[in-house]
């Protein structure tokens, strides 16, 4: 069920091009190494994606709208 929920969320966020910002992995409490790897990799990925673009629509509305205009 969890995987379906996450898939659902990714699909929905896909409308905004944000699907890559959600990640699901199974890690047992014994897999410390895997935990570190997954979290590090995902953190790197988020960093490389840059800040969430959505707040700009609130805070710099005119710039964001101008972007939409072309």
């Amino acid at each position: 069920m969890t995987i379906k929920r996450i898939t659902f969320l990714q699909e929905l966020l896909g409308l905004f091009g944000l699907q890559e910002r959600v990640h699901l992995a199974w890690i047992s409490s014994a897999e410390a190494q895997k935990f570190v790897e997954v979290v590090t990799a995902f953190t790197e990925k988020i960093k490389s994606l840059g800040p969430n673009p959505l707040p700009a629509y609130r805070d710099a509305p005119r710039a964001a709208l101008a972007a939409a205009a072309h």
Binding site: L15, F16, L18, P53, A64, A68
Partner: peptide
């Protein structure tokens, strides 16, 4: 992704 975001947010 960007176009979709812009259009929906508009």
């Amino acid at each position: 992704p960007e176009e979709g975001r812009n259009r929906w947010m508009y």
